[in-house]
Simulated scan of single mutants.
Amino acid sequence: MLNKANALETAKMLLGIEGDCRDNLLSFLIEDNINLILNYCRISDFPQELESLLPVMTADRYRRASYGQEKADKVVKSETQGSVSKSYEDSTANDSHFLNNYRERLKPFINRKGRVPSDFDEPEKND
């Protein structure tokens, strides 16, 4: 059984947050990440093997959206040698989709036989 309280405590540890001032926000992100994983993998039960990934994803999303003081790491976006010029951006800014960061970890849990929303747009074929 998925223990959301453990996920919350681990996410707070990863972010260096003490106390309960961010618990509501982090709990929301945990719940949303559960839904993202279930929908992405097209499964109905959360796999025990992914429970350790949940707080990592939560901390990542928290930093990515700059919900708190805990900012995402900056990476060099561009660099100019003459007259020395550098510009930075968030390390997650170039991700086309949040779950791409976790694709390899989620791959074994994807239900290939599930239906996607576009499957429901087509009329069923009765042969």
Rank of each mutant, 00 (worst) to 15 (best):
L99N: 02
K107F: 08
R103Y: 12
K125V: 12
E9V: 09
G19F: 11
F120H: 10
D127A: 13
L14P: 03
A11W: 02
M57K: 05
A93Y: 08
Q69M: 06
E51G: 01
N3G: 10
L25F: 09
H97F: 14
R22T: 06
V56C: 07
I30E: 01
N100D: 10
K74I: 00
D119G: 07
L14V: 06
K71H: 10
G19D: 11
G68A: 06
I37W: 00
N35F: 12
V75G: 01
T92Y: 12
E70D: 11
L29Q: 04
E9Q: 14
I37T: 04
I110W: 04
M57C: 07
S87I: 04
T80Q: 14
Y67N: 08
A59N: 03
D90Y: 06
E9T: 11
F46E: 01
I17H: 05
R63N: 04
D95K: 12
K113F: 12
M1C: 08
V56L: 02
I37K: 04
R103W: 01
R115S: 15
R22Y: 07
R63V: 08
R115G: 14
T58P: 02
P55F: 00
P55G: 05
I34S: 02
N33R: 07
T92L: 12
I34P: 05
C41E: 05
D127M: 10
E79S: 15
A72F: 02
D32W: 03
D121H: 10
F46H: 01
N33D: 09
P117L: 05
M57D: 09
L8Y: 02
L38Y: 09
S78G: 02
K77P: 05
L8R: 05
S83G: 08
D95S: 14
D20L: 06
I110G: 04
C41I: 02
A93R: 01
D73C: 09
V84F: 13
A59C: 12
V75R: 02
L2K: 00
E9K: 13
V76G: 07
F98S: 07
R42Y: 07
D32I: 00
Y67K: 07
R112E: 15
Y102Q: 06
L50R: 02
M57S: 02
R105M: 05
N101D: 13
D32P: 03
N94C: 09
G19S: 03
S118T: 13
F109D: 06
R103H: 11
L15V: 10
D60W: 12
D73A: 14
V84E: 03
K4Y: 01
N126L: 15
E79R: 13
G19A: 10
P117A: 02
S44P: 03
S27N: 14
P123E: 15
M57W: 11
R115K: 15
P117I: 05
V116H: 12
I17V: 15
K74W: 06
L99P: 00
I34N: 10
R22Q: 14
K4V: 01
A59W: 14
G82Y: 10
R105P: 03
M57I: 08
Q69L: 13
G68Q: 02
T92H: 06
K125R: 14
N101C: 00
L29M: 05
Y40E: 13
H97V: 10
S27R: 09
R103P: 06
K86N: 11
G16A: 03
A11I: 00
N39V: 04
N3K: 14
N101Q: 15
E49G: 07
D73Y: 08
